[in-house]
Amino acid sequence: MRQVLASLWFALHSAGQNFRRNLGVSLAGVFTMGLIIFLVGGSLLFTHSVDTVLQGQEQNASHLKIYLSDNASLAAITNFESRLKHDPRVISVTFETKDQAQQQASQNPSIKSALAVLGSNPLPASLNLDVRKLTYLSQFNAEAKAMPIVDSTTPTDYNSDVIGKLNTVITVIEWVGAIIAIILLTISIVIIMNTIRTAVYSRRTEIEIMKLVGATDWFVRWPFILEGMLGGLLAAIFSGAVVFGAYRLFVQAAQGNLLSVPFDTRYTITLLIVLLVGGVAVGAFGSFLGVRRFLSA
């Protein structure tokens, strides 16, 4: 026990000494690591936010409004409606009459006054579809256009393929993000490795003596691994705080612009823990690689 404590104290003390003696290199290492952790954490949070927003959009977006011609007979409409109802791609269909359309539109005061001026109701009746998949929207769009009962001037209303494209973009962002994260991870391991090499180099006499008098490899290694872990931890704490602050500002700014991005507390906490553990792990691993060469002799 006494021995373990003394070893731990020796390792901690040496790690702190290394950090201070090579303060410039250590701080540069911590700063670069911090920047990388910030980039990883920031992009993860950003993708997550975009994802959340898009998922909400997807639910809104699987709507299709089919405008009906004023000349369409009620029988033809009912026929079309029941055909849609039995279509497996469809979740629900509702029929909106001209009057309902007018009522709906009148909620907006300027439209209400415009309608009052017109005297008649120019708004068409419509069938409102909810479909199971976004990709069905374009299929229904094409089918509707071929129907004689559908208003030929403005047959349908839906978000066309914007959503689909955004989805592709998200997938691409996620892939690119993953690849960049792996590259950044490798870079941070190399950075830690080189920081530790500097520390090892400035302690080469000490290491030589340790090996000569019969210290074990792990005894030689621990101070450097602790130093790497310390660096990783510091980097993760600082960049984690910055990521957290930036995320809050982002959410606030987005809400100011009517784009409702929810503040996901659970995701954020998980992310911060992952960043901390990741920073420490990367620090330990980089240091391990950094001292390895000097111990093999």
């Binding site: 006494r2 021995q3 373990v4 003394a6 020796f10 000490e206 003596i209 340790m210 008098v213």
Partner: peptide, 24 residues
């Protein structure tokens, strides 16, 4: 002599014990 310049004479000697028999 491979002495550690930042340590005193006594610390240099103690170093050999610290790294092989910590807590002795």
């Amino acid at each position: 002599y491979k002495l550690l310049t930042r340590r005193t004479v006594a610390q240099n000697v103690a170093f050999a014990l610290q790294v092989t028999r910590p807590g002795q």
